[in-house]
Amino acid sequence: MARYGMVIDTLKCVGCQDCVIACEAENSVPEGFCRDWITTEAKGTFPTIQMEIRTERCNHCTDAPCVSACPTGASHYHDIGGVVLVNHDECIGCKACIASCPYDARFVHPEGYVDKCTFCIHRVEKGQDPACVSVCPTYCMTFGDFDDPGSEVNKLLNSRRYHSLLPEAGTKPNIYYLT
C-alpha cells in the first residue's frame, strides 16, 4: 500500500502562487476558483515578526471526513496512494463534504459537482510530480509515499521539525510543513 503526501518547506516558500497557477492551467480549473492557495501567517508586532508562508491544498487525509460525509460514495479514496478524489458523475452536489472539511479545500465546480485537488493523480500515475510541485521555483514541495520508509518525504520528516494543519481535527492529514 502506498500513502501519498507532501512535505513542504516553509523556509523556502515565498508565497508566489506559481503552484496555484500551474494547477489551474494543468487542470483547467474554472476561473474564479483554485484548488491550492497560499496562506501567510504573521505573528508579533513590528518589527519583531515571525512569519510562515505555506502553500495549502486538500490534505488527502487518511481519515477524510469528506469521504465519510458523502452519501453516494462519489468522494472516495483512490486505489493508488489513498488519494482523496471525487467521482463527478456520482456527485449530487449536496455539499456535505464541503461542510465537513476543516480545511475548506473543496468547492462546487460551475458544472455542479464538487471539485478539489487530485494530487494530479493523472501525472503521478505517469511517474511525474503534481503540477504544483514540478513548477515551484523555490523547490519547496516534495511529493512522495509515506508508507515507503526510504522515500524522500520520510527522510525530510526525519531530519527536520514539522507540523501539519489542524491535527486536532483528527483527520490524519498527509501534508506536512517543515519549519
Partner: peptide
C-alpha cells in the same frame, strides 16, 4: 498579533462558508 492572509477566494467558500442558503 496573529495576521492570517489567504489567497484563496473560492465562491461560496471564502471568506466564510455560504454553501447552504
Amino acid at each position: 498579533m496573529n495576521e492570517i492572509t489567504s489567497t484563496r477566494h473560492n465562491h461560496l467558500i471564502d471568506p466564510s462558508l455560504q454553501i447552504w442558503n
